[in-house]
Design a protein around this nucleic acid. Structure first.
Lengths: 233, 233
DNA sequence: GTGGCCTAGTGGCTGAGCCACTTGACCGGT
DNA sequence: ACCGGTCAAGTGGCTCAGCCACTAGGCCAC
């Protein structure tokens, strides 16, 4: 029972900063993807040094609640800074990079195969998915359903049941990352543009171009979600 | 492949320091309670600034692996700085429901007995534990020590050596759940409120009310702990 | 348009320094 | 010999000022 002998722990400054930060996020109604104020501003308005703000941010970073981009600001990963369902989140974050890596490998090859093997009917399916996504976005939605259909159509057009099976095993996690990705401001329209490029390459029967376009697309998604994870809401 | 997906990711300096620290503890064979080198020495020998060492130590602190005493050095809490492997965590969680069920049974009865049998001196002990916890929280700590003292005082006031013995056998695991629970934002103050309710029931000599208050308290702790497995109770 | 360039903004990290707290040795009185 | 108070060194807590590296967005030349 060394705990009993342990002297009382006094509050560290960074813990207080943590509290204020949590309160700020709540009060300001910040959501996932939103940007926190600059460290210098935070330090000034909280009346503490930048080093203390930094310590608090490092804590939030290792807890996966925040993502600090060198030179680009610090962003919320979730809608809150509270740490609740910790362990599961940690486990998922560990696996996410693997999932995204697998996705790149699979979908790049799928796009390549689709460009080679697609029938005209399958090309039409892909185009319809694209149109569907365009409509979704035009109506203000984020386009997740169109996104899903597009990738499903490409997978079907690749005529590889084995690769399709592999995709199935990570489908759930891909769905989650897709949802999160499309929630980023401006992402839906950019995602649509990338889909269009993939579609055109497949239509043109250019496997190399299709693979490259798909790779770029998947990497864009991966970059947004890199080192971060947000449970589906 | 993984390199391809995260080409730009650079280790933050504090992460490298973390690595070196873990390696150092292992190589030097440090055990729980041993003292780490001073921050200044660490910074000098690792060739980094003290601020970076500090960030690493803050991380270890929030992970409960290390305890920094103002003016007194930084000490190991366990024999290693490695975070507990996920598997082990999961295993521990599987056993936990049983522990928490046992705790509910024991402590509910203990509170009931305490309300009937407590002497004035024992009531005073309970109140002091409550005050201690209040002070801890007021100073920004999470109140684990006050929490422990409170439950110990109630157990003593129940005058049941058998039940007390039972409690002893699960004391270790209760400590873990207590620490975990009080780490949640906002928990300490709510826990304090529940303790106060229990204390008042015991003071009033109302066994039924004391038992009810204790049951509610223990279930709250259990709920926090079980969130990962049981979304709704 | 498209691509390259430039600059302001922002996070990463450093080094020097002051303060607060702990520890232990030292010293004087009993 | 013992107790109690004092003091200095060691150490963590925190700040300040500043430089560097990277990002993003606007601007300009082509």
């Amino acid at each position: 029972m060394s705990e009993a002998l342990r002297p009382m722990v006094k509050s560290r400054l960074y813990e207080q900063v943590l509290e204020r930060l949590r309160a700020y996020v709540t009060e300001a109604g910040l959501k996932a993807g939103d940007k926190l104020p600059a460290e210098r501003d935070l330090a000034a308005s909280l009346g503490v040094s930048r080093a203390s703000v930094k310590q608090a941010i490092v804590v939030l970073e290792v807890q996966g609640l925040v993502e600090a981009r060198h030179g680009g600001g610090t962003y919320l990963v979730r809608d809150t800074l509270d740490v609740e369902p910790v362990e599961q989140l940690v486990e998922r974050r560990k696996r996410l990079p693997e999932v995204l890596e697998a996705r790149e490998a699979l979908e790049t090859k799928l796009a390549e195969l689709a460009a080679e093997r697609r029938t005209d009917a399958e090309l039409e399916d892909i185009r319809q998915a694209l149109d569907f996504m365009r409509d979704e976005i035009a109506e203000g939605a984020n386009g997740v359903e169109g996104d899903r259909r597009f990738h499903a159509a490409v997978t079907a057009a690749a005529h590889s049941s084995l690769l399709a099976d592999f995709m199935k095993t990570i489908a759930g996690q891909i769905t989650e990352s897709r949802t999160e990705s499309l929630r980023q401001p401006g992402r839906p329209s950019r995602s649509l543009a990338q889909h269009t490029a993939i579609c055109e390459a497949i239509a043109a029967g250019d496997p190399k171009k299709a693979a490259a376009a798909m790779r770029k697309h998947v990497r864009t998604v991966a970059k947004v979600r890199l080192l971060t994870w947000v449970p589906e809401d």
